[in-house]
Design a protein around this nucleic acid. Structure first.
Length: 567
RNA sequence: UGGGGUGUCGUCCAACGGCAGGACACAUGACUCUGGAUCAUGGUAUCGGGGUUCGAAUCCCUGCACCCCAGCCA
């Protein structure tokens, strides 16, 4: 039975959908739904932004409306073209399209200026000559009312003159600001005569040196929404206390008035989501860059091998609400595996090779076995995998003294080599000095060709392998979470660096993978059977035989859990 | 301490006066040429105290906890 809180797509009718449904019923905005995703180009987009992107673009799609991609580029000292480019790339990669509707707040600087003039003429804005420090003092505190600036009642003509001279560059940074004249005793601090314009003699990535005054967020944002005819202006919770201001400016101007709706931003366990911290990780060289596969940035996730479909699915599953929350990263990984399981070709790769000589297999002989490319997808077909007398197997698929629950290879024990033969371990060869196992001697059963025998005897385990003479060398990077604790908000220390995982990256440089991987390109995603999902990294140079794989996510590993529980 | 918000399984989201449900996670079992996938089963929640009502997660009162706001950041 379909639940009331779900629509036909099985999606939860969260509070924003409810608002929109109600608006449509009431004929508000003539039933139109126009949303926007308004990033500030001061960093790379991360998984938290993905929630907002999916929400805004998704809602527009659902209701037959549209979503604008709008850069909120009102602060040239922090913003860069590099960020604009990356944001465009990332939103596209996620699978969304804004058609003609790419906008920049800076495109409206002229209109905003005119609107400011209108407020000044209406006696609702004034040029203040107080210093930054003085403005702060005059603002009061959470419990004490503020005090009016001595410049608050400047005559309109003087305000007009001063504001024009601000624009014309007659003053230095910080010398003057334009403020809205609201109420210095307002219990909401945001309403105590907020600054509308500040002087910034900085070059803007788009407008260059055309302006030296730049609008503040509160003044600019509602205006941008209004100009574009946005119906539902969706933002995060911290802007809730700014809504009265959003409304005040639009009402004071008497212009079209979109509705601001706030929802809780995404937090993920073991993940840093603060733009400031992420920037610091990049600048301090803790990670290799914004697209380091350990980063929660979209470019990092992409390089890690995440798929847009998995991220979109995740965004829907986490829901939308107003309470602060932290989503278990395992849900993201679940969505990822679900997509990858259906769509990733299987391949054999040995991460930590242990050489095996099959003593009763003819020397120099090679045969090929058919391997299924994807058991979840018949259309994916099969491929040939070469087999020979010497193979590599995974070092931890063998144990000298196995515990009861370990049923892989051990002395005297028989296992199945995937798609090939049954094989029994007959001898363990160790390094005389270190005692390290350096090679295994095994025998195979010729009757088990293809992985079955007539007698129907059972082998408990199937392991993967790669033929020694056919093996291709590869470097494999194993990633773990960047943080050692699930929630930074509950950290004891203020310094987040104390919680950075020193083992977030492990590089294995002597891995052996099957030859079919030789002709793949960077970005190629596959599953190394029994090991996890991997993607060929851009550091690879397949034509030169340099293969580098990033582990996207591990397979669910029941044995690892048993082994850990046994300790 | 002023203002604005939020409190439901371990986590996230539902239930909008009528049997607290789903997903992830966890546990157990079945199946399996990936200890993968799949399937089955199971446990765990309404912040506290009052009240209204036949009936309260939902309405009222009261208390408590947590988050946001004192940038010329967004």
């Amino acid at each position: 039975m379909k639940r009331e809180a779900e629509d036909d797509g099985g999606k939860v009718v969260h509070f924003i959908r409810q608002i929109i449904n109600r608006d449509i019923e009431n004929g508000k905005n003539a039933g139109r739904v126009i949303t926007r995703f308004p990033p500030e180009p001061n960093g790379y987009l991360h998984i938290g932004h993905a929630k907002s992107i999916c929400l805004n673009f998704g809602l527009a799609e659902e209701y037959g409306g549209r979503c604008h991609l709008r850069f909120d580029d009102t602060n040239p000292v922090k913003e860069e073209q590099e960020y604009i480019d990356s944001i465009i790339k990332d939103v596209r990669w996620l699978g969304f399209d804004w058609g003609e509707h790419l906008y920049f707040a800076s495109d409206y600087f002229g209109q905003m200026y005119e609107c400011a003039l209108q407020l000044i003429r209406a006696g609702k804005a004034y040029v203040d000559g107080l210093s930054g420090e003085e403005i702060r003092r005059y603002r009061g505190t959470l419990t004490e009312a503020g005090v009016n600036s001595p410049y608050r009642d400047r005559p309109i003509d003087e305000n007009l003159d001063l504001f024009e001279r601000m624009k014309d560059g007659e003053f230095a940074d910080g010398e003057m600001v334009l403020r809205a004249k609201i109420d210095m005793a307002h219990p909401n601090m945001n309403m105590r005569d907020p600054v509308m314009y500040r002087i910034l003699h900085a070059s803007h990535p788009r407008t260059g040196d055309a302006w030296c005054i730049y609008p503040m967020y509160d003044w600019a944002h509602g205006l941008e929404d209004s100009i574009e005819g946005i119906t539902h202006s969706i933002c995060t919770l911290e802007f809730e206390a700014h809504r009265p201001l959003y409304d005040w400016f639009l009402d004071a101007l008497g212009v079209y008035h979109p509705q601001q709706i706030e929802f809780a931003r995404l937090n993920l366990t073991y993940t840093i989501m603060s733009k400031r911290y992420l920037l610091q990780l990049v600048k301090d060289g803790v990670v290799a860059g914004w697209d380091d596969p350990r980063m929660p940035t979209l470019s990092g996730l992409r390089r890690r091998g995440y798929t847009p479909a998995a991220i979109r699915d995740f965004s829907e599953r986490i829901g939308v609400a107003k309470r602060d929350s932290i989503v278990d990263i395992q849900l993201l990984e679940y969505c990822l595996r679900e997509d990858l399981n259906k769509n990733s070709p299987r391949v054999m790769g040995v991460l930590d090779p242990l050489k095996v000589v099959i003593t009763n297999y003819p020397e120099g002989h090679v045969e090929e076995f058919d391997a299924i490319n994807n058991p979840e997808d018949e259309l994916a077909g099969t491929r040939k995998v070469p087999f020979s007398r010497e193979i590599y197997i995974e070092r931890d698929d063998f144990m000298q003294d196995p515990p009861k629950k370990f049923y892989r290879l051990a002395p005297g024990r028989e296992v199945r080599l995937r798609y090939a033969y049954y094989m029994t371990c007959t001898e363990v060869i160790k390094d005389e000095k270190s005692g390290e196992i350096i090679e295994l001697r095994c025998t195979y059963d010729p009757e088990s060709r293809g992985g079955y025998t007539q007698d129907g005897r059972k082998v408990r385990s199937t392991i993967h392998w790669v033929s020694v003479p056919h093996a291709v060398d590869a470097t494999v990077r194993l990633y773990d979470s960047l943080l050692t604790i699930p929630d930074l908000a509950e950290a004891d220390k203020k310094d987040y660096m104390a919680y950075i995982n020193p083992d977030s990256l492990k590089t294995l440089s002597h891995c052996k993978v099957e030859p079919s991987l030789r002709d793949k390109l960077a970005g190629y995603r596959c599953q190394f059977e029994r090991k996890g999902y991997f993607v060929m990294d851009s550091d690879s140079d397949p034509t030169a035989g340099v293969l580098v794989f990033n582990r996207t996510v591990e397979l669910r590993d029941t044995w690892a859990r048993i082994a850990q529980a046994g300790e």
